[in-house]
């Protein structure tokens, strides 16, 4: 547990403009590690039933079959989506460090597509509320399919100028969704409002003599969307669905496909 906590702390402590140097990074997590945590395993023997008759059995309590009705209606889904949105990156200056030497570089966005395209994997988990309303948390991660940027060095060192080039753009996002759905037979349809953030991590590789390092620029934008969802229930607990939505604040839009599972038949009421 402490290792996980240390990892989270280290991640959170990383600056938005990351620039690992060539002088050998140390493993920051080692100072937090504690090897004797979480290694204990229960040695209790497994319970063995000698009868399945209520009152005589010892391992299984009465009414295991009724457990799911006591839970709220929960659902999860996983899928993929294509997003189109205006690049949050404008002309930006940043620095990259090689062996303690700092170099300034500038990133400009080529004048071409009005919207960038991203392909992301999405997972969401939610809870069904009364009267068809629901709430969900959604996470996504992926990459930009097009819409890269052009970096160029703006300064030189005593031994020349580093070479810098774009190395891909990661797309990360998180949002909450509130919506309502209606079901007719095996078909489900709903409308939802989504609020969250989307972070783009523009990564660059820099070469300076024998030294190679990566640096990144992070751009985070708020996301407010209205979405429509439709799903076909493949079984009472598994659905296949599509999503389409549009940003409420700009020209961005999203389409997606997802496979969902619910703890209640047809997602509950």
């Amino acid at each position: 547990m402490r290792r996980v906590l240390a990892f989270v702390i280290v991640l959170a402590a990383r600056p938005a403009l990351a620039g690992p140097t060539c002088d050998g990074g140390s493993d920051d997590t080692s100072s937090f590690s504690d090897s004797d945590d979480d290694d204990h395993r229960s040695t209790e023997p497994a319970c063995i039933e000698t009868s399945d008759v209520h009152g005589y059995r010892t391992c299984t309590p009465f009414g295991k079959w009724g457990r799911s009705a006591r839970w709220p209606s929960l659902f999860v889904s996983a899928g993929t989506a294509m997003r189109r949105f205006a690049s949050p990156m404008s002309t930006t200056d940043s620095t990259v460090t090689h062996d303690g030497e700092s170099f300034r570089y500038r990133v400009t966005r080529p004048e071409r597509a009005a919207l960038d395209t991203a392909i992301v994997a999405q997972v969401r988990a939610g809870i069904g509320l009364r009267h068809g309303f629901y709430g969900a948390i959604e996470l996504e991660a992926g990459g930009l399919a097009d819409g890269s940027t052009n970096p160029e060095m703006m300064s030189s060192g005593v031994l020349g100028t580093p070479e810098i080039r774009a190395a891909g753009v990661a797309v990360l996002g998180g949002a909450i969704a509130l919506g309502a759905r209606l079901r007719s037979g095996v078909l489900d349809a709903g409308l939802e409002g989504v609020a969250g953030v989307r972070t783009l991590v523009y990564q660059y590789e820099s070469h300076y003599l024998a030294c190679e390092t990566t640096t990144s620029i992070t751009a985070t934008t708020p996301v407010f969307e209205a979405r429509g969802r439709a799903a076909l229930w493949l079984t009472p607990f598994i659905s296949l669905g599509v999503t389409a939505g549009r940003s409420l604040v700009d020209d961005a839009w999203i389409t997606g496909l997802h496979l969902g599972a619910s703890t209640r038949a047809f997602g509950g009421r």
């Binding site: 209520h54 009414g63 079959w65 009705a69 209640r264």
Partner: peptide, 25 residues
Amino acid sequence: APYDPDRQLQTLQLDGRRSGREAIA
């Protein structure tokens, strides 16, 4: 009367499209 030494028997809801079984003495 059912054999229920620990008084566990009670009315439970069986969720939609679910099944269950119990053997009662």
